[in-house]
Simulated assay, not measured.
Amino acid sequence: MKFKNICVLGGSGFVGANIVRMLAAQGRNVRVLTRNRERAKELIVLPTVEVVDADIHDPVQLKQHFKGMDAVVNLVGILHEKTPGRIDKPMARRGDFQRVHIELPRKVINACVENGIQRVLHMSALGASGTSDSAYQRSKGIGEALVREAGLPHSDHENWYLDGPKFIHGASLYTTIFRPSVIFGRGDSFLTLFAGLCKTFPILPLANAQARFQPVWVEDVARAFVGALDNVASFGQTYDLCGPKVYTLAELVEFTCQTIGSTPRILPLCNKLSYLQAWAMEFKPGKKLMTRDNYYAMQVDNVCSGATMPGYQPAGLEAIVPEYLNESNPRGRYEGFRHRAGR
């Protein structure tokens, strides 16, 4: 069985663009919903991809654009809130995390049911938990739980069977949830950010220097999504996605600096100073580098401990990162020019 018509939310983003390209390469029809069609110009030229301007938070538009689809992939997520809220108190003001990570998955589920779509792939995050001290991880955990509860329990696996593009088993959704660690690759907001800091500052005060991560390559994440789409064994499952090695934040920053030939002094901060740095950065205008919510998230190791997909073999970052961070080599310069040109 092959799902032919796929609607992707967040398809113009870092992970989404890679997933859309892989789906298109398989000859699938992909509908990308985006608030800014110009951001998806590299996808518009793909022959089986339709890019549609849409307000994905509008249930009416979701229902309209889900018509004719066989499956939905929800990749939408944010790292920082412009409008903070209290997701732990229903009567309090709702913030961006609640709107994006909780209310949107609920709307997606409802729109799928209304259109008879039974296949849903959902992007969560490693560390997502409804009891986390981090509002980001807490909202991700609640949204993940909503999707999981809407899906068919894994215990009913033996009762699944197919009939054309739909499944015959009541109105249950056939969900797969992915929980990646931090994701790296050209255009990431993690190692590329540190590369810029390494070039700019002779001393880098580093909060949460001993926080542990297991970074995963964006293409490995995309392959996991695409590989799970038709795989019946993945229905009802939740998968952690990580690279092959665990690093401290300090080790990742040191590696990034060495890769670009920079030698700033990295100054690990104690727990109290880490919190104060995060608090101070919240008031910095423009793009946020760190917030207190990030500080809370990094108190828990961001490493894999749950189930991983059978056959999943991720690439190590040492083999990938120099290709896009180090522009002193011909390949790096070419990729740098290509990225700045938006190609």
Results as ranks from 00 to 15, higher is better:
Gly16Cys: 08
Ala17Ser: 15
Leu23Cys: 01
Ala24Met: 05
Ala25Tyr: 02
Leu33Gly: 02
Arg35Tyr: 11
Arg37Ser: 12
Ala40Tyr: 11
Glu42Lys: 14
Pro47Met: 02
His57Tyr: 09
Asp58Gln: 12
Val60Gln: 10
Lys67Leu: 03
Val72Ile: 13
Asn74Lys: 10
Gly77Gln: 06
Gly77Ile: 13
Pro84Ser: 00
Ile87Ala: 09
Ile87Arg: 02
Arg99Leu: 15
Ile102Arg: 13
Leu104Tyr: 02
Pro105Val: 06
Ile109Pro: 05
Ala111Asp: 05
Glu114Phe: 03
Glu114Cys: 02
Ile117Thr: 04
Leu121Asn: 10
His122Asp: 08
Met123Lys: 00
Ala125Ile: 03
Leu126Cys: 04
Gly127Gln: 03
Ala128His: 05
Ala128Asn: 04
Ser132Asp: 07
Ala145Cys: 10
Leu146Trp: 11
Arg148Asn: 09
Glu149Cys: 07
His154Ile: 11
Trp160Glu: 14
His169Gln: 10
Gly170Cys: 14
Thr176Asp: 13
Phe178Asp: 15
Phe184Ala: 01
Thr200His: 11
Thr200Ser: 14
Phe201Cys: 09
Pro202Ala: 14
Arg212Glu: 14
Asp220Lys: 13
Arg223Ile: 04
Arg223Val: 00
Gly227Leu: 12
Gly227Lys: 11
Ala228Asp: 03
Asn231Thr: 14
Val232Tyr: 11
Glu251Asp: 01
Phe255His: 10
Gln258Ser: 10
Gly261Arg: 09
Arg265Leu: 15
Arg265Val: 13
Ile266Gly: 03
Lys272Ser: 07
Lys272Asp: 10
Trp279Ala: 11
Lys284Leu: 07
Pro285His: 10
Asn294Val: 00
Tyr295Ala: 00
Cys304His: 01
Ala307Arg: 07
Thr308Ser: 08
Leu317Asp: 09
Pro322Asn: 02
Gly332Leu: 06
Arg333Tyr: 09
Phe337Tyr: 01
